[in-house]
């Protein structure tokens, strides 16, 4: 009887009060409606034009922009990954680099909070001052720089995730702080670093405004020259929304871009789930 009463009390405590529940429910509803509306619009307008965007001879085709997207991603991802992981390793333990690590953590917060468009515009001005023409390669470099703080933050999270006990155990065995970071925390963080890499790739693929500005697509007095015959897909969606190709083709291109990003995020989530399952098995 007493156990039933406790169980009943426990059950009643799990039911949320009406007002907060209604508020949370309303917010969730707004989010769902927004997502469904956007995706619905993309499908409604984009699907009838899907044949056009997959036609390589159509000026609204997405094949060239997809290749340009891949080009920018392949160029931008490795520097962002290398700088991000190494900076995170330096920041992971204040005992390794002392004040440098502390400064790096502060800088990470500061740089990460600067809007990406501003960083991109600064990169464009710097490129122009050196006499370089806006190009996809320059855009890739800027996008790489833009994503370095994100890669560093994600890597730092991966390296230090529940690391206190492991760090303590290794230190107690006589390991140096550098050994702890390089030989213990880094191998342990590999699965999460892979996930971080995919997330940063997703950011690069979808970083429309920044790529557009740095590539010169929106720069004052310059269109730049797209070496592959197109800008990345995100730029095409942004800049051609009202162009001759029309809304339909733009919506179709946007749908392709959205699906591409969903696929990347899905892969990241699948990997994360597999890792969680493996950890539970262990």
């Amino acid at each position: 009887m007493a156990i039933d009463a406790i169980a009943a009390k426990g059950t009643s405590q799990r039911v949320a009060p009406p007002l907060p529940a209604a508020l949370f429910g309303a917010c969730a509803g707004v989010l769902c409606v927004s997502v469904v509306a956007i995706v619905g619009w993309l499908i409604l307008i984009g699907v009838p034009n899907a044949v056009r965007v997959f036609n390589p001879h159509d000026p609204a085709g997405v094949l060239a922009p997809l290749i340009a997207t891949a080009y920018v991603t392949i160029l931008a991802l490795p520097p962002a990954a290398i700088v991000g992981v190494f900076a995170a390793m330096a920041a992971a333990d204040v005992r390794v680099f002392g004040s440098v690590a502390r400064a790096m953590r502060n800088a990470l917060t500061l740089v990460g909070s600067v809007p990406t468009v501003i960083v991109a515009f600064a990169a464009l001005l710097a490129a122009l001052s050196f006499g370089w023409h806006p190009s996809l390669t320059g855009a890739a470099l800027a996008v790489s720089i833009i994503n370095m703080p994100l890669m560093t933050a994600l890597s730092l999270g991966a390296l230090t995730y529940r690391a206190a006990a492991i760090r303590e155990a290794t230190t107690a065995l006589g390991a140096s702080p550098m050994y702890v970071v390089v030989r213990v925390l880094l191998p342990r963080a590999y699965p999460r670093l892979r996930g971080a890499l995919i997330l940063v790739a997703t950011q690069i693929v979808g970083a429309a405004a920044a790529i557009a500005i740095v590539a010169g697509a929106q720069a004052p007095g310059g269109h730049g020259s797209a070496p592959i015959g197109a800008w990345p897909l995100a730029v095409e969606v942004l800049t051609r929304g009202s162009a001759a190709s029309g809304y339909g083709a733009t919506a179709a291109a946007a749908l392709v871009l959205t699906i591409l990003i969903w696929v990347l995020q899905g892969v990241a989530q699948l990997r994360a789930s597999a890792e969680s399952a493996a950890q539970e098995d262990r």
Binding site: A165, I166, E168, A169, T170, A172, V184, P187, R188, Q279
Partner: peptide, 13 residues
Amino acid sequence: IGMVFQRPNPFPT
């Protein structure tokens, strides 16, 4: 001077 901690902390990898 070796040390053993409150919670078991084998290296997971």
